[in-house]
Design a protein around this nucleic acid. Structure first.
Lengths: 116, 116
DNA sequence: CGGAATCCCTGCTGATACTG
DNA sequence: CAGTATCAGCAGGGATTCCG
C-alpha cells in the first residue's frame, strides 16, 4: 500500500498518463478546486446543512458554496434533500459513489495531521 | 480503512474542522490547485525532467509548470537537481516528505480508474 | 533545455442585496 | 434558512520573448 504500485508496462506510461486518459486527472476533475474536498470532509462528518457548512468554512461565499454543492450533486457525489418547511431546510449527504471517496479524504486528513 | 475513522469527540469537531486548524486544508494548501497532484503523479513514476513533464501534461504552460515545481520544492515535497551541462538538464524527485504523499496520489489514481 | 520576465486577459471569487 | 442575481476586482494562468 506504500511503495510498489508501479506495475504499469513502461510503453503504456506515456499514453496512460496523458490528460484525458489519466485517472488522476479524472479524480481531480471531480474533487479538484479550492473547496470540494473540505466540503466533502464536513459532509462525511454529518455536517450536512448549508448554513452549518458555510459557517465552518472560513472564506467561502454563499454563492461559491452553492455552486460547488451543485457540481458535486451533478457528479453524483452528494445527495441534496430539501424539506418543504418554513424556514426551509436542506440536508446534504454522501451518495454511494461519494462514500467511495472517503479513503482519499481521510488520507488527506491524516497527512495533514502528520506533516502539516 | 474504509468506514469508521470518526473517533473525534463531538465537541471538538467545530474547532477542529475550522480552516486553519483543519488538516484537510493543510494538505490542500500543499497539493491543491489544478496541477500539483498530476505533477507529483508523474514524478512518482520517475518522469523527472522538466520538458518531459511539460510534454505529458496537456494544457499547462511552461510558466505555470515552473511555478508549481518551485512551490513544491519550497514546501519540501520535491527535490530539484540541476546538472551543469550544455544543454542544461534538471531532474526532479520526491523527497522523503514527498514520498509520504503517495498514498494520497495512488488513492486518487485508483478512484479515477474505478469510478471515472 | 530549463527557465525568467513581460504583457495581457479571462473567469473565479467575494461582497452585497434580494427572494421564497 | 437556503439560496439566486448582479457587479466588480484581482490573481491565476496563457502566449510570447529572451537568456545562461
Amino acid at each position: 500500500m506504500t511503495e510498489n504500485n508501479l506495475e504499469m508496462p513502461a510503453e503504456m506510461k506515456e499514453s496512460f498518463l496523458a490528460i484525458g486518459t489519466c485517472p488522476v486527472s479524472t479524480t481531480i476533475g471531480i474533487i479538484g478546486g479550492k473547496w470540494k474536498v473540505i466540503i466533502l470532509y464536513l459532509i462525511s462528518y454529518d455536517i450536512c446543512r448549508f448554513s452549518h457548512i458555510h459557517k465552518l468554512i472560513d472564506g467561502i461565499s454563499k454563492k461559491t458554496l452553492a455552486e460547488q454543492l451543485k457540481e458535486l450533486e451533478n457528479d453524483g457525489i452528494i445527495l441534496r434533500k430539501a424539506f418543504p418547511e418554513v424556514p426551509p431546510r436542506v440536508e446534504y449527504s454522501l451518495t454511494a459513489k461519494g462514500l467511495t471517496l472517503r479513503p482519499i479524504i481521510f488520507s488527506m486528513r491524516d497527512w495533514g495531521i502528520k506533516f502539516g
